[in-house]
Design a protein around this nucleic acid. Structure first.
Lengths: 196, 196
DNA sequence: TCGAAAGCGGACCGGGCGGTCAACTTGGTA
DNA sequence: TACCAAGTTGACCGCCCGGTCCGCTTTCGA
């Protein structure tokens, strides 16, 4: 059992995580610890007191974001329309990414145990959402939760390639991809689903 | 008019570009010039004689790859089945990316004038492929060439998120996305197409 | 109120990076 | 074959990065 953080330390930790998320969103993985510390208004040494390495800091940010998604997904599991619930989940995920694109952080923290665990929990939640949608006939039979876990980030990624694009262009590509997931007019898939 | 390269310089340039592509594919943007030079079996100074900056080297690689795609697309414009031609183009593009994923280089060289020009030519070729496919009823009316220009990279991107996935998993996601592009069972799109 | 533990911060370190340069080698030509 | 422009090379430079360390400040419970 670890004792609670001192008041100033807790405040600094919050400032640090917020500043790091902003800095990473603006400058990508190359954002430096020194710049993050400056933005948070704290010393560089303090950063390393809270997180032993840059990777640990990244993992903490990822953890927060994935946990929000899991909560959203669990809520939507109780919605009336399973198809709308799945679509709604993808919209929330895309909105999170649109606000601050930190997708590159996932790759950088994939080695972290805690991140792997929480990502596994997210995959399970998405599995459940997809199962419900499939049973309801909202998505085709040959689609799995893992498929959606992987496809989830695609709309933002695609929209991100357009330079001066409007911020919600991702909606267009989410709609196209979601149409590809529907049972109507589905062609057989040339490759089996990946194992989880 | 610039005089032709000396024989040894031309050979070194070829070795350098090949080594750089390999090194970038393995280690991402952080691949260092020193390592690239070592891999090519030439001195570090020679790299900078051929390309004034690291960005210029990246731009040269991107240029080569995009030009291959343009040629492929132009060929496919004369194929019999416009729908199959478009799908075939996407398959070639995905295979190129699958063999060596250098997608991150595009972002790193987007400022380069020559790269912008050649990318514009690629967009025009894709425009033509999509126009033919649309006229033929192979893709829905509300899809543009720019849409496909953006969607092109999505299958590899999606498959890349699966850790130990088989190398041609992208085929599954290309099929799903392509199903979303077909006229059958299409739902209206919530966001207009981006301008080129 | 006061002392100890917790937290803070910035000078400092080793290392690797992109890029430069001047001495040297080599290919093409007259 | 002899010359020289073109090409090569690796030691070197300045910079910035992640991470360390230790003297100082703050918090908080007794």
């Amino acid at each position: 059992m670890t004792r609670p953080l001192r008041a100033d330390a807790a405040r600094n930790r919050r400032l640090l995580l917020a500043a790091a998320a902003d800095e990473f969103a603006e400058r990508g993985l190359e954002a430096s610890i020194a710049d993050i510390a400056r933005r948070a208004g704290i010393g560089k040494g303090t950063v390393f007191r809270h997180f032993a390495t840059k990777e640990d800091l990244i993992a903490a940010i990822v953890l927060d974001r994935v946990e929000v998604l899991i909560e959203t997904g669990d809520h939507l599991l109780e919605a009336d329309d399973p198809g709308q619930a799945l679509l709604g989940f993808l919209e929330v995920a895309a909105e999170q990414r649109q606000q601050r694109d930190l997708s590159f952080l996932h790759g950088a923290s994939s080695g972290n145990t805690e991140v792997s665990q929480v990502q596994e929990r997210l995959r399970a939640t998405i599995d459940a959402l997809v199962d419900r949608a499939r049973d309801h006939g909202a998505v085709r039979d040959d689609i799995t939760g893992t498929d959606l876990f992987l496809l989830m980030c695609a709309p933002n990624y695609v929209a991100g390639y357009a330079p001066g694009a409007p911020p919600d262009l991702w909606r267009r590509y989410l709609a196209i991809i979601f149409d590809g997931l529907r049972p109507q007019g589905a062609h057989p898939l040339p490759h089996p689903a990946p194992s989880p």
